[in-house]
Amino acid sequence: MSLKVNKSLILAASFFALFSTNAHAYIDPGTGSIAIQFLIGGLVAAGFMIKTYYYSLKNKLASIFGRSNEDKLSGSAPSGDALAGNSVSPDNSTDKT
């Protein structure tokens, strides 16, 4: 890993260090583990949003074109992704990461 990335991680870790000390957790969440979640969360949030829209669009299309299509479409999705994608509707306006 480059020195630049490492420095960013140190910065992120120190940035979120205070959060972990304030957390009311009975297990230690770990400062580094909190920091990396913000980084990963930032990376995956957009992808997850697209996935959510993709599956909801797929479901809408399926309902327009009838049941047989719906079965086909939902059957083609990987189970975990379909579960996550179809069943959640997080408020996108809160995405500040």
Binding site: Q37, F38, G41, G42, V44, A45, A46, G47, F48, M49, T52, A84, V88, P90, D91, N92, T94, D95, K96, T97
Partner: peptide
């Protein structure tokens, strides 16, 4: 940590 980030 946004909801999208958490679900993601």
């Amino acid at each position: 940590f946004s909801q999208n980030a958490f679900y993601g």
